Each structure stands twice: as structure tokens, then as C-alpha cells.
Amino acid sequence: MSHAMGHVPDRERDRAVELVQQAYADGRLGPAELERRLELALTATASGELEPVVAGLADDEDEDDEVVRIASTGGLIKRVGDWHVPRRLRIDSEYGRVKLDLSQAHIPYPRIDIELRLAYGGATITLPAGASANADGVRIGWGRVTSKAAGRRCPGRLHVQIAGDLPYGSITIRTARR
């Protein structure tokens, strides 16, 4: 069997592995089931083969509850200092600016997802030293994404996955100085 048959995007595979590891960490899967599902995830050659891997793990209703939404038409959405960062954060801002400083924040997760919907606004995200960020999931119109942070995850360090829509907006991602 050749591997050219199907291709699983890394993002989907990573998400599946992450869901399985999270379920194990939460005590919803035993070690044997963890092994079995990880093996399936890593050997899957088509997206459909990931379905049994995440079966019963990604409960969409639970996921929706966990997304923290912040919305604003204009003005500044600002989070700095010691704030509790949710696992999934969604920010909608039409004309405003967004300033998220994660460098002193309380982040109990190895990875967080930030979804930005900025029509004309701009966002600046400051990561803790050593953290990485991936903004490949951002759809850009006339806007732009500037990242000065590492793109590859480092084991044991925070990784921020950034997605969203920027018809005219812009995002700057930087890392805090130690």
C-alpha cells in the first residue's frame, strides 16, 4: 500500500493526538486505550481514519462552552498582567484594537487557541518568553500577520494557535523579553 493514497493534514493529526492526550490526562481513557488511539492517529493515511481516534472525545457541546468570547465594535480590548487565559479565546472586533499580553498571565494549558475576527482592527499578542505561535490559520484579506515569535512548538513551553479572519486587520505577535 502506497502512502500516496491519502494525506492527513498535520493540523488534523495534531488535533486528534491532542484530544486523546487530553482525555487521558482527564482520566477518561486508560493507558491501553491511549496507546491504541495514538497508534491509529499516527498511522492514519486519510482524514476519515482519524474519526475512530477521536470518537467520543470531542464533544462539540462541551467545546462551545469552553470558548470565551470577547466582542467590541470599536475601542480597545485589552488583557494584561495576571489574568486567567482560557483554553480557547475568541475575539470579535470591528474597528477596535486588541492587545493581549500573555507574558504574566496564568495559563494552565500547554496550548491555547485564539480566534480573532478583526474587520479593520489590529491585534498585538505578546507571548511569554520561550513560547511559540502559529498563525497559519489566519485568513488575510488586505491585512497582514507579523510574527517575531518561534513558529515551532517547544516541548514544555506554551504554544499559541491563532486563527481567524482579517479582511483589513493586522496581527503582530511578539515575545516578551525575559
Rank of each mutant, 00 (worst) to 15 (best):
E49P: 08
R36P: 11
L50S: 09
G48N: 11
L42K: 11
A23E: 04
E35M: 06
P52N: 12
Q22K: 12
E35H: 10
L29C: 02
V8I: 04
L40I: 11
S47A: 14
D10T: 01
A16T: 02
H7Y: 15
T43S: 14
E12W: 06
L29G: 03
R28S: 06
A23C: 02
L40K: 14
P52T: 12
L50Y: 07
L38H: 00
H7R: 15
A46D: 09
T45Q: 13
R28K: 09
P9C: 03
Q22W: 09
A44W: 03
E51N: 14
L40M: 15
E18Y: 09
E33C: 03
V8R: 05
E49N: 09
A16E: 03
L42W: 13
D26G: 05
A25V: 02
P31D: 01
L40F: 12
E33F: 01
P31V: 03
R28D: 07
L40D: 14
G27R: 04
Y24G: 06
V53K: 07
L50A: 10
R13E: 00
T45I: 09
S47T: 15
E18F: 10
E35K: 11
L38S: 00
E33P: 03
D10W: 00
R13Q: 00
E18I: 03
A46S: 13
A32S: 14
E39K: 12
G30N: 10
E12M: 09
E49Q: 15
G48E: 13
E12R: 05
R37P: 08
R28F: 06
A16K: 00
A41D: 04
A32P: 09
E51W: 12
P31W: 01
R36Q: 15
T45K: 13
L29E: 07
T45H: 11
R15E: 08
Q22N: 10
A16Y: 00
L29S: 04
S47C: 12
A32L: 14
G27Q: 02
R15L: 05
Y24D: 08
Y24F: 15
P9N: 07
V17S: 01
Y24E: 10
D14T: 10
L19T: 07
E12H: 06
E35I: 07
E35N: 10
V8H: 03
D10R: 01
G27Y: 03
L29M: 06
E35G: 08
L29F: 06
A23Q: 04
G48K: 15
H7W: 13
P52V: 11
L38D: 02
Y24A: 13
R37T: 08
E12C: 04
V20L: 06
V20M: 05
Y24R: 10
A16W: 00
R11Y: 09
D26C: 05
R36E: 15
T43K: 11
L38R: 00
V20K: 06
A44M: 04
P31M: 00
S47P: 12
Y24L: 10
A25M: 02
Q22Y: 04
L42S: 11
E39T: 14
E33I: 04
A46C: 09
L29A: 02
G30L: 09
R15D: 07
R28L: 05
D14I: 08
R36M: 12
V8D: 04
